[in-house]
């Protein structure tokens, strides 16, 4: 199925839970409301015509230009995205699903934005979500074991946030 067909099918099924799409992009993407992601993911996997049995990639992206001089040219509202790259071994088609979140929940700096975990749908999402939590700072609710995976447990901050500040020292090791 082409991305346009898939988008149509999703809109017919989920209505306004599909909040946007860009079907002309290099990799066409569909945007889903954060609260509906598990429902949509389960449907994408189980529907025989879609059969997205593989989650190729899951990552977080931080859209922010920390330099106020360059912010006007940046072209995006500050937000965080979770990007799901799906693939179907049955039909050999691909789809990108995106979820847009605020950078901080309720605008309170330090309070991580939340999105339901899809680790119940694809097993590999477990580790990918841990990585996105660790590096981008996204809280995946309902995740069975949401701990840091690459950084140490006591690490402070999330390195792939654009406004991340490099630590001055870590357990007596000088950072810069």
């Amino acid at each position: 199925m082409t991305a346009a067909d898939i988008h149509q099918k999703l809109v017919a099924k989920f209505g306004d839970k599909i909040t946007g799409a860009n079907l002309e992009a290099i990799d066409p993407w569909v945007e889903v409301a954060p609260a509906a992601i598990v429902e949509v993911a389960a449907y994408l996997k189980s529907d025989p015509a879609l059969a997205f049995d593989a989650l190729n990639n899951l990552c977080g992206v931080d859209y922010l230009e920390p330099d106020p001089k360059k912010a006007a040219k940046f072209g995006h509202e500050p937000h965080v995205e979770v990007v799901y790259h799906l693939y179907s071994y049955t039909h050999r088609h691909a789809l990108v699903v995106k979820v847009k979140l605020p950078r901080w929940q309720g605008g309170v700096a330090g309070k991580l934005p939340e999105v339901p975990s899809v680790s119940g749908v694809w097993a590999i999402a477990d580790w990918h979500e841990r990585e996105a939590f660790d590096l981008v700072g996204i809280q995946f609710t309902g995740h069975p074991n949401l701990h840091r995976i690459l950084c140490a447990e006591d690490w402070v901050g999330h390195a792939l946030r654009k406004d991340y500040e490099f630590p001055l020292e870590y357990h007596g090791i000088r950072g810069r």
Partner: peptide
């Protein structure tokens, strides 16, 4: 994991 973590993705940005 993570003993070789260098945050290559941050470097890439």
């Amino acid at each position: 994991l993570g003993y070789l973590h260098r945050s290559a993705e941050k470097i890439g940005e």
